[in-house]
Design a protein around this nucleic acid. Structure first.
Lengths: 329, 329
DNA sequence: TTGTATGCGTTATCAT
DNA sequence: ATGATAACGCATACAA
């Protein structure tokens, strides 16, 4: 019978058990205490159905066991799955997660950062592609796939190696005239490294290539126009395409097929991300697979790590090749 | 220059502005205050870069502007999109959201409910299909698509009408031998109403139908076996199928095609959910479309509503038909 | 109107 | 080892 209408507090438990406040606190936090006391307190907790108030705890201890995750969206499976994995790992480690979807808009990101700061989160995991985000000092941050500044640690898949792997695979499968299709940013960021790795291997193998890069990679028409301009008399100038994301690859493949080209017979296509189609469970195209679960684990490890001092500025996780029917192997 | 290493408090602002604590509190909370004071306080806030500590505030006011969302996962687009919409609406309304993915496992759900309760959330939005979840009293809850008990308000799409609509569409498109394929629960829950609506219209139209229901609807083999057992000499016993979800429909369609059947020429299929394929942007099949955004808005409205007293136990939102190429219209 | 003082539920520092 | 007590940062009832 709690005195007030609200839920019982430690004080109530202490009174019920006939012990002092400090003793209850110790029991609740697993600090050793006399056996008889232990029993009495546990009984009282049980009886009153006591629940800790983590707001009071956070106020005192200034540690909230809460991490914020900033994500453009959860509607797309790539972000949805990453969110799911990060949430799982965080939960296993005894942390709550505040989700902030940002639509990739900087003003929303900024507002959310401010908001979760007020919420005293212990850290922020950030997935963004906007430039020049202002990051307040004093709150630990980790970025995913976005090397913003050397001061913020970044975990990403090995985008450069992924680009190399894509070029290598296309070459192995007999392609001789390659092209890269995807986004590019004015400043060197992680996704751009996919292109750079691709160029690296093309150069090494002495394979000719062309680039079709645009800043806003949701502008598919730009890519279609590029393809059309290289399509003459029913034949395409390329026999191998590396697309920056599976999304782009998927749309590009549709366009190629509309043109009457056969994939992979006439032209082979490799994408990037490796998200299985949620409905079929299969890759939508041959692809470079990001280790999503690893990225989640490492991000959480970093944000929860005690000595933030010596975190490396960039951690690259290994990618792999996933066959998805749009290449010859 | 904050005295301690931590961030400035209201007290710091008060000292800086040369006013009292209460005045600062008023300014921060938008309570009218003398003009000159207003200016001084705002200047001090600016100068010190003061941020409210919502933990201290929540402790005092026992309102945290935080809502918990329990979802099986965010990895699948249906749940991912719903999560996204709920998050957006909550954010617009000035609330934080704690995300708890549960994998649909009851012990995880229970642990999360307990956890967010400790976190003093103002309410919980819950999407679950488990039976007999223990819901602590005293904390507002709203369920989605799951009518647990009359005490918990539920918002769902009009599943019954959706089932009716599916049967009607199949009939309109000339189908004469129908079947329902999907899950069924021992107790009457929302998804089961899809089946019931389907039966309702079949009965009204005097159309024969068969049912293939299984409790665990991720057991696709069960559905395949059902189809196989109704497939003789290259012809299927049915010319119209209504599947409980687009996921099931997608797999069923694949199986039908493997059998050499043409969709929609030989057999027409309608699914349920209406989630566009993330890669193509199109429905994976003809489908009954759930109003995801509406569901999100209404759920948030309910959980944030002041007078929880007179919330109806069930709110049904209208569904619509989405053509996706697996029917004749 | 503005300032002062008390308490929210907890942890931590003291004495005991 | 245990019990009393002072903060933590803020809201608020009350005094000025």
């Amino acid at each position: 019978m709690p005195p007030r209408g609200s839920s019982p507090t430690m004080k109530d438990v202490a009174r019920e058990a006939g012990v002092s406040l400090g003793t209850v606190s110790k029991v609740v936090n697993g600090i050793p205490v006399g056996k008889s006391y232990q029993k009495k307190v546990e009984a009282a907790i049980q009886k009153l159905n006591y629940r800790m108030n983590s707001y009071a705890k956070g106020l005192k201890s200034s540690r909230t066991n809460t991490i914020a995750l900033l994500m453009p969206t959860t509607a797309h499976p790539f972000f949805g799955q990453l969110t799911y994995h990060i949430n799982s790992v965080l939960s296993e480690r005894g942390n709550r997660m505040i989700l902030c979807t940002t639509e990739g808009r900087q003003e929303i990101e900024q507002a959310h950062i401010r908001m979760v700061q007020e919420n005293q989160v212990d850290g922020i995991i950030l997935l963004t592609y906007t430039e020049g985000l202002e990051c307040q000092e004093g709150i630990p941050m980790v970025t995913i796939d976005r090397n913003m500044s050397s001061s913020l640690p970044c975990v990403a898949c090995d985008n450069f190696a992924g680009g190399q792997l894509a070029a290598q695979k296309l070459a192995d499968n007999g392609c001789r005239r390659l092209a890269y299709i995807g986004s590019s940013s004015p400043l060197p960021n992680e996704p751009t490294k996919r292109r750079d790795g691709f160029i690296s291997t093309c150069t090494t193998l002495q394979l000719p290539y062309e680039l079709c890069s645009v800043y806003d990679d949701s502008n598919y028409q730009y890519f279609y126009d590029f393809i059309d301009s290289h399509f003459h008399n029913g034949v395409l100038d390329f026999d191998g395409l590396f697309c920056c994301t599976d999304m782009i690859a998927s749309r590009v493949i549709s366009h190629l097929r509309q043109l009457g080209l056969r994939v992979p017979e006439d032209v082979q296509v490799i994408g990037f991300d490796g998200i299985p189609d949620p409905f079929t469970g299969e890759y939508v195209c041959s692809t470079i697979v990001q280790p999503l679960e690893q990225i989640a684990i490492v991000s959480v490890d970093l944000i929860l790590s005690e000595d933030k001092a010596q975190i490396p500025p960039l951690i690259c996780l290994p990618v792999s090749y996933g066959y998805g029917g749009t290449t010859k192997g």
